[in-house]
Amino acid sequence: MLDGLKDIIRKSSIHVCLVNTGGCNGCDIEIVALLSPRYDLEQYGIYVHNNPREADVIIVTGAMAEQWVDKLQRVYAKTPEPKIVVAVGNCPLTGDVFNQEGGNVHAPVSDFIPVDAEVSGCPPRPSEILEALLTVAPGAIAARGRQKL
């Protein structure tokens, strides 16, 4: 009973924290574009707050710059359970163009925190990001919640 109620509420109110760990910003503005009336992220009950302490979903973009090596885990630890991590863009998956000789990046992000969903593209289209979020977020959050209890 309580589980069912929690599921319903969690599914309809998902808070997102966006963490840029060293990309070109292209992915971040495509996520901002999701807020626009055309895509309207909030009609699905997803809110971008950028506050790790109240987030359910962490969206990671960027290729893990030096500074983030210890900080990303701290952001992850601050986020309450259940939480899921979505990596958006080629940067967190492979390091994209920055992962070459001379680059100062530590991609992939999955070396540091567990990643639940990945969206490739440089940058992916807003509709693809939206699709990934909607596919993975509500179900995964509800399932995680049950495992815990």
């Binding site: 840029n20 760990t21 060293g22 990309g23 960027g62 290729a63 710059a65 030096e66 500074q67 983030w68 163009v97 920055f98 070459q100 000789e101 001379g102 680059g103 100062n104 990046v105």
Partner: peptide, 9 residues
């Protein structure tokens, strides 16, 4: 926080 060393690359 997002230094990637792009000139060096």
């Amino acid at each position: 926080y997002i230094h990637r060393g792009i000139e060096r690359v």
